[in-house]
Protein backbone atom coordinates (compact mmCIF):
# COMPACT_ATOMS: atom_id res chain seq x y z
CA UNK A 1 0.00 0.00 0.00
CA UNK A 2 1.22 3.50 -0.91
CA UNK A 3 0.74 6.23 1.67
CA UNK A 4 1.44 9.96 1.56
CA UNK A 5 1.51 11.43 5.07
CA UNK A 6 1.34 15.24 5.31
CA UNK A 7 3.65 15.73 2.36
CA UNK A 8 4.60 19.29 1.45
CA UNK A 9 6.68 20.15 -1.57
CA UNK A 10 7.78 23.27 -3.42
CA UNK A 11 10.14 23.56 -6.40
CA UNK A 12 13.01 25.97 -5.59
CA UNK A 13 12.16 28.22 -8.55
CA UNK A 14 8.43 28.47 -7.63
CA UNK A 15 6.95 31.22 -5.48
CA UNK A 16 4.37 28.95 -3.86
CA UNK A 17 4.23 25.32 -2.86
CA UNK A 18 2.93 22.63 -5.18
CA UNK A 19 1.30 20.69 -2.32
CA UNK A 20 0.83 21.22 1.38
CA UNK A 21 0.22 18.50 3.96
CA UNK A 22 -1.02 16.12 1.31
CA UNK A 23 -2.22 12.77 2.61
CA UNK A 24 -3.70 9.94 0.62
CA UNK A 25 -3.31 6.20 0.23
CA UNK A 26 -3.58 3.67 -2.56
CA UNK A 27 -4.50 0.03 -1.97
CA UNK A 28 -2.48 -2.77 -3.55
CA UNK A 29 -3.77 -3.85 -6.95
CA UNK A 30 -5.77 -0.65 -7.50
CA UNK A 31 -6.00 1.23 -10.78
CA UNK A 32 -6.05 4.91 -9.89
CA UNK A 33 -6.08 7.80 -12.34
CA UNK A 34 -4.98 11.27 -11.28
CA UNK A 35 -6.51 14.16 -13.19
CA UNK A 36 -6.13 17.90 -12.89
CA UNK A 37 -5.29 20.97 -14.93
CA UNK A 38 -1.84 21.38 -16.48
CA UNK A 39 0.83 22.32 -13.97
CA UNK A 40 -1.30 21.39 -10.96
CA UNK A 41 1.28 18.88 -9.68
CA UNK A 42 0.22 15.50 -11.05
CA UNK A 43 3.67 14.61 -12.32
CA UNK A 44 5.23 15.97 -9.12
CA UNK A 45 3.40 13.24 -7.20
CA UNK A 46 5.18 10.67 -9.39
CA UNK A 47 8.54 12.43 -9.00
CA UNK A 48 8.07 12.25 -5.22
CA UNK A 49 7.08 8.58 -5.32
CA UNK A 50 10.02 7.50 -7.44
CA UNK A 51 12.48 9.54 -5.41
CA UNK A 52 13.46 12.11 -8.04
CA UNK A 53 12.26 14.81 -5.63
CA UNK A 54 12.31 14.83 -1.83
CA UNK A 55 9.39 16.21 0.19
CA UNK A 56 10.22 19.21 2.36
CA UNK A 57 7.79 17.95 4.97
CA UNK A 58 6.02 14.67 5.62
CA UNK A 59 6.87 11.20 4.40
CA UNK A 60 5.91 8.62 1.82
CA UNK A 61 5.48 4.99 2.79
CA UNK A 62 5.15 1.78 0.81
CA UNK A 63 3.81 -1.14 2.80
CA UNK A 64 4.49 0.79 6.00
CA UNK A 65 8.18 1.49 5.23
CA UNK A 66 9.59 4.90 4.26
CA UNK A 67 10.55 4.88 0.56
CA UNK A 68 14.13 5.95 1.38
CA UNK A 69 14.67 2.54 2.94
CA UNK A 70 13.41 0.40 0.07
CA UNK A 71 14.35 -0.23 -3.54
CA UNK A 72 12.45 -1.12 -6.70
CA UNK A 73 9.07 -0.41 -5.16
CA UNK A 74 7.85 1.56 -8.19
CA UNK A 75 8.46 1.65 -11.92
CA UNK A 76 7.92 4.71 -14.05
CA UNK A 77 6.61 4.87 -17.60
CA UNK A 78 6.92 8.35 -19.10
CA UNK A 79 4.80 10.12 -21.69
CA UNK A 80 7.42 9.56 -24.40
CA UNK A 81 8.54 5.97 -24.85
CA UNK A 82 12.18 6.95 -24.13
CA UNK A 83 13.48 3.80 -25.75
CA UNK A 84 17.22 3.96 -26.37
CA UNK A 85 17.67 4.07 -30.16
CA UNK A 86 21.05 2.29 -30.03
CA UNK A 87 19.59 -0.73 -28.24
CA UNK A 88 17.49 -3.47 -29.81
CA UNK A 89 13.98 -3.93 -28.43
CA UNK A 90 15.23 -6.90 -26.41
CA UNK A 91 18.10 -4.87 -24.94
CA UNK A 92 15.77 -1.97 -24.16
CA UNK A 93 13.45 -4.24 -22.25
CA UNK A 94 16.36 -5.78 -20.34
CA UNK A 95 17.69 -2.39 -19.21
CA UNK A 96 16.11 -2.33 -15.73
CA UNK A 97 17.20 -5.95 -15.17
CA UNK A 98 20.76 -5.12 -16.26
CA UNK A 99 20.83 -2.40 -13.63
CA UNK A 100 19.67 -4.89 -11.01
CA UNK A 101 22.48 -7.29 -12.03
CA UNK A 102 20.05 -10.07 -12.91
CA UNK A 103 21.79 -12.92 -14.77
CA UNK A 104 21.81 -12.76 -18.59
CA UNK A 105 19.98 -16.08 -18.81
CA UNK A 106 17.20 -14.89 -16.50
CA UNK A 107 16.98 -11.56 -18.38
CA UNK A 108 16.50 -13.40 -21.66
CA UNK A 109 13.84 -15.68 -20.19
CA UNK A 110 11.81 -12.84 -18.68
CA UNK A 111 12.24 -10.71 -21.79
CA UNK A 112 10.88 -13.46 -24.04
CA UNK A 113 7.96 -13.97 -21.67
CA UNK A 114 7.00 -10.32 -21.52
CA UNK A 115 7.41 -9.87 -25.28
CA UNK A 116 4.94 -12.67 -25.77
CA UNK A 117 2.57 -11.03 -23.28
CA UNK A 118 2.67 -7.76 -25.20
CA UNK A 119 2.44 -9.56 -28.54
CA UNK A 120 5.74 -8.31 -29.96
CA UNK A 121 8.01 -11.39 -29.85
CA UNK A 122 8.87 -10.98 -33.53
CA UNK A 123 10.44 -7.58 -32.82
CA UNK A 124 13.03 -8.66 -30.23
CA UNK A 125 16.00 -8.00 -32.52
CA UNK A 126 14.58 -4.88 -34.15
CA UNK A 127 15.37 -1.29 -33.20
CA UNK A 128 12.87 1.31 -31.91
CA UNK A 129 12.91 3.08 -35.30
CA UNK A 130 11.33 -0.04 -36.82
CA UNK A 131 8.23 0.19 -34.56
CA UNK A 132 5.06 2.28 -34.70
CA UNK A 133 4.09 4.67 -31.88
CA UNK A 134 1.70 2.15 -30.29
CA UNK A 135 4.27 -0.64 -30.46
CA UNK A 136 6.90 1.57 -28.84
CA UNK A 137 4.54 2.32 -25.97
CA UNK A 138 3.90 -1.40 -25.50
CA UNK A 139 7.64 -1.99 -25.36
CA UNK A 140 7.98 0.87 -22.91
CA UNK A 141 5.27 -0.78 -20.80
CA UNK A 142 7.06 -4.15 -21.02
CA UNK A 143 10.26 -2.46 -19.82
CA UNK A 144 8.30 -0.93 -16.92
CA UNK A 145 6.88 -4.34 -16.00
CA UNK A 146 10.37 -5.88 -15.97
CA UNK A 147 11.62 -3.26 -13.54
CA UNK A 148 10.14 -5.74 -11.07
CA UNK A 149 8.08 -3.26 -9.06
CA UNK A 150 4.58 -3.90 -7.78
CA UNK A 151 3.51 -0.31 -8.41
CA UNK A 152 3.52 1.19 -11.91
CA UNK A 153 3.51 4.95 -12.40
CA UNK A 154 2.20 5.73 -15.88
CA UNK A 155 2.50 9.41 -16.82
CA UNK A 156 0.16 10.13 -19.75
CA UNK A 157 1.58 7.17 -21.66
CA UNK A 158 -0.90 7.36 -24.53
CA UNK A 159 -1.22 11.12 -24.97
CA UNK A 160 1.07 11.24 -28.00
CA UNK A 161 -0.81 8.50 -29.87
CA UNK A 162 -3.53 8.95 -32.46
CA UNK A 163 -7.13 8.38 -31.34
CA UNK A 164 -7.62 4.81 -32.59
CA UNK A 165 -4.25 3.60 -31.31
CA UNK A 166 -4.99 5.26 -27.97
CA UNK A 167 -8.33 3.44 -27.68
CA UNK A 168 -6.65 0.12 -28.56
CA UNK A 169 -3.89 0.77 -26.05
CA UNK A 170 -6.37 1.55 -23.27
CA UNK A 171 -8.14 -1.76 -23.77
CA UNK A 172 -4.79 -3.50 -24.01
CA UNK A 173 -3.58 -1.85 -20.79
CA UNK A 174 -6.64 -3.06 -18.89
CA UNK A 175 -5.91 -6.63 -20.01
CA UNK A 176 -2.28 -6.26 -18.92
CA UNK A 177 -3.37 -4.92 -15.54
CA UNK A 178 -5.71 -7.85 -15.01
CA UNK A 179 -2.93 -10.22 -16.08
CA UNK A 180 -0.03 -8.81 -14.06
CA UNK A 181 -2.00 -7.79 -10.92
CA UNK A 182 0.06 -4.64 -10.40
CA UNK A 183 -0.98 -1.41 -8.71
CA UNK A 184 -1.29 1.28 -11.36
CA UNK A 185 -1.23 5.04 -10.86
CA UNK A 186 -2.13 6.71 -14.12
CA UNK A 187 -1.85 10.39 -14.94
CA UNK A 188 -4.05 11.69 -17.72
CA UNK A 189 -5.70 14.83 -19.08
CA UNK A 190 -8.37 12.75 -20.76
CA UNK A 191 -11.46 12.35 -18.56
CA UNK A 192 -12.88 9.54 -20.71
CA UNK A 193 -9.60 7.65 -20.51
CA UNK A 194 -9.57 8.03 -16.71
CA UNK A 195 -13.17 6.81 -16.42
CA UNK A 196 -12.66 3.85 -18.75
CA UNK A 197 -9.51 2.61 -17.04
CA UNK A 198 -9.75 3.38 -13.35
CA UNK A 199 -11.32 1.93 -10.25
CA UNK A 200 -11.01 5.37 -8.65
CA UNK A 201 -10.12 8.81 -9.92
CA UNK A 202 -8.18 11.31 -7.82
CA UNK A 203 -8.97 14.89 -8.78
CA UNK A 204 -6.59 17.72 -7.97
CA UNK A 205 -8.73 20.81 -7.54
CA UNK A 206 -6.52 23.61 -6.38
CA UNK A 207 -2.92 24.70 -6.12
CA UNK A 208 -1.32 24.22 -3.70
CA UNK A 209 -3.39 21.16 -2.91
CA UNK A 210 -3.70 19.43 0.44
CA UNK A 211 -5.98 16.62 -0.66
CA UNK A 212 -7.34 14.98 -3.76
CA UNK A 213 -11.00 14.19 -4.17
CA UNK A 214 -11.39 10.47 -4.69
CA UNK A 215 -14.23 9.41 -6.98
CA UNK A 216 -15.19 5.76 -7.47
CA UNK A 217 -16.03 4.68 -11.02
CA UNK A 218 -19.26 2.66 -10.87
CA UNK A 219 -18.18 0.05 -13.44
CA UNK A 220 -17.06 -3.53 -12.94
CA UNK A 221 -14.16 -5.18 -14.78
CA UNK A 222 -13.75 -6.38 -17.47
CA UNK A 223 -14.98 -3.21 -19.15
CA UNK A 224 -16.23 -2.55 -22.63
CA UNK A 225 -16.19 0.72 -24.50
CA UNK A 226 -20.00 0.69 -24.68
CA UNK A 227 -20.04 1.01 -20.87
CA UNK A 228 -19.02 4.61 -21.37
CA UNK A 229 -22.47 5.33 -22.81
CA UNK A 230 -24.26 4.40 -19.56
CA UNK A 231 -26.07 7.33 -18.01
CA UNK A 232 -24.20 7.29 -14.69
CA UNK A 233 -20.88 7.23 -16.56
CA UNK A 234 -21.88 10.08 -18.86
CA UNK A 235 -22.90 12.04 -15.75
CA UNK A 236 -19.61 11.21 -14.04
CA UNK A 237 -17.64 12.45 -17.04
CA UNK A 238 -19.66 15.68 -17.06
CA UNK A 239 -19.08 16.12 -13.35
CA UNK A 240 -15.32 15.63 -13.77
CA UNK A 241 -15.14 18.05 -16.69
CA UNK A 242 -16.96 20.64 -14.57
CA UNK A 243 -14.44 20.19 -11.77
CA UNK A 244 -11.52 20.64 -14.14
CA UNK A 245 -13.12 23.72 -15.68
CA UNK A 246 -13.59 25.25 -12.25
CA UNK A 247 -9.96 24.61 -11.48
CA UNK A 248 -8.85 26.22 -14.77
CA UNK A 249 -11.04 29.23 -13.98
CA UNK A 250 -9.49 29.56 -10.51
CA UNK A 251 -6.01 29.36 -12.00
CA UNK A 252 -6.79 32.22 -14.42
Amino acid sequence: MLEFQNVSFQYPQDSRPMMENLSFSVEDGAFISIIGASGCGKSTIFRLINGLEKPQKGAIFVNGRPIEQIKQYSAFMPQKDLLFPWRTIEKNICLPMELQNISKQEQKKRCQQVLEEVGLSAYAKKYPKDLSGGMKQRISFARTILAGAEMLLLDEPFSALDFLTRVDMQEWLLKQWEHFHKTILFITHDVEEAVFLSKSIFVIQQKPFCDMQSIQVPLAYPRKREDLKKKEIVDLKEQLIQKLRQQEAKAI
Binding site: N50, G51, L52, K71, Q72, S74, A75, F76, P78, K80, L82, F84, L95, P96, L99, Q100, A147
Partner: peptide
Protein backbone atom coordinates in the same frame (compact mmCIF):
# COMPACT_ATOMS: atom_id res chain seq x y z
CA UNK B 1 14.28 12.59 -18.99
CA UNK B 2 16.29 9.54 -20.10
CA UNK B 3 18.72 10.14 -17.26
CA UNK B 4 15.84 10.38 -14.80
CA UNK B 5 14.27 7.22 -16.18
CA UNK B 6 17.52 5.37 -15.46
CA UNK B 7 17.59 6.89 -11.98
CA UNK B 8 14.11 5.50 -11.32
CA UNK B 9 15.52 2.05 -12.22
CA UNK B 10 18.17 2.55 -9.55
Amino acid sequence: EMEELLMTYG
